[in-house]
Amino acid sequence: MIINHPILGPRDAQEFVYLGDASLINRPDGLTASPAEMHDYVYLRDNPAGLHRELWYHEQGDRSWLVVTRNTVTHEITKVEMARDVARSMGRSK
């Protein structure tokens, strides 16, 4: 698979480390979240067949985190964003 890095251009997926569903960005506040919320965040996944937004880390590159939209049935990648931008657009890191 080739991941089209927003800054570096097309890169081989082997340069990246995979983390999983991009919803992991939405970590609840550990000081206020209920145990049930933390359980759901840590352990449960939607795990869809089809379009999946997921986190890839460019370990052998610029060490940026990306949000890659990929089809889990065909492996086709349709969108690549900087995870930083995605997180900020959701109001995190303020």
């Binding site: 999983g20 569903d21 449960l44 996944r45 939607d46 795990n47 067949a49």
Partner: peptide, 18 residues
């Protein structure tokens, strides 16, 4: 392999990835 897909019919999210 398809557990998440089938159990989503019952509204369940599972502790697994395929």
């Amino acid at each position: 392999g398809s557990s998440s897909r089938v159990m989503s019919h019952a509204g369940m999210r599972l502790p697994m990835e395929s």
